[in-house]
């Protein structure tokens, strides 16, 4: 394998780990749609950043972090809408804004459309470093707020009623989520990111017992999906994005089959 591809493998592993770890919380909170909402917010941010001549990485990161943090205001005990329905409505708003921005833009649309599918093959060292740093921040956050995050996953109502600083930790988590997705978006793409968030975590929830096992397994499944998918595309000469998505689906199918055949780990 050409040494050029080593950087792609590292980038894929870091993106897979980020999405796998993030998925533990997004899937556990029953909000996998948050991933697709935030990634499209980042897309809208990128479109308007390019239109206005702003920084195309940090501009969208700030916009998606802000949009994500505002979701913390949706209280489960007060909401009349299912959070996923509310997210679907916000998602359609972001999609409309994105395409409006695309229509207003005069230049090439390649860069914007690349956000849909990602461009792992054109990754640069600088992007890998940024993704690595953001992953490190996520790991530190998950360790530092481990006890609060567990209660949040189990029940936001219990967390709120018993004095856990749930709104603060939840808003912080969503903000971090926005930054991570915006940073990973040019690499992984808005469509693939959804699979990498949902499938590894859903697979880990199938086969694990205990929260720590879920965290480690989901992160590992994320890495396996990204690296395995890339290697399959390299050796079989197939599209990279499609292979990574299919690899993550295969991981979930294998976990579900394992649970069905070997029983649960409960």
């Amino acid at each position: 394998m050409d040494p050029f591809f080593h950087l792609i493998l590292v980038a894929g592993a870091l993106a897979g780990a980020s999405c796998g770890l993030l998925g533990v919380y997004l899937v556990g909170l029953r909000l996998p749609f948050v991933g697709i909402f935030i990634s499209h917010t980042a897309m809208a941010g990128t479109v308007y950043a390019l239109l206005l001549g702003l920084n195309p990485v940090w501009g969208p990161a700030v916009v998606s972090a802000g949009a994500a943090m505002s979701l913390a205001a949706l209280r489960p005990e007060r909401a009349r809408l299912d959070p996923n329905v509310a997210l679907a409505i916000l998602f359609s708003l972001m999609l409309g804004l994105t395409f409006l921005g695309l229509g207003l833009g005069q230049g090439s649309r390649t860069e914007i459309l690349g956000l849909l599918w990602g461009s792992l093959l054109f990754v640069q060292t600088k992007s890998v470093i940024v993704i690595g740093v953001v992953l490190a921040v996520l790991v530190v956050f998950a360790l530092a707020f481990s006890k609060e995050l567990k209660v949040l996953l189990f029940s936001r109502t219990i967390a709120a009623a018993t004095g856990v600083h749930e709104t603060f930790v939840y808003a912080l988590f969503l903000g971090l989520c926005g930054v991570i997705l915006a940073v990973n978006l040019p690499l992984v793409g808005g469509l693939m990111i959804f699979s990498l968030i949902t499938n590894p975590a859903a697979a880990a929830y199938q086969v694990c017992r205990g929260h720590r096992a879920v965290v480690v397994t989901s992160t590992g499944f994320g890495i396996a999906s990204a690296v395995g998918g890339f290697l399959a595309s390299y050796y079989l000469n197939l599209p990279t994005g499609a292979c990574i998505v299919l690899a993550s689906t295969l991981v979930f199918a294998a976990a579900a089959a394992h649970r069905a055949l070997a029983g649960t780990a409960d």
């Binding site: 707020f145 006890k147 600083h165 603060f168 930790v169 694990c208 017992r209 879920v214």
Partner: peptide
């Protein structure tokens, strides 16, 4: 109002009772 489908162990669930007793971080 709680997510009984997640694979938390019983000990992890009971330990959640101590989460608000200890400060953040």
């Amino acid at each position: 109002e709680y997510n009984a489908d997640l694979p938390f162990t019983l000990r992890e669930v009971v330990a959640m009772g101590r989460a608000s007793i200890r400060p953040l971080l």
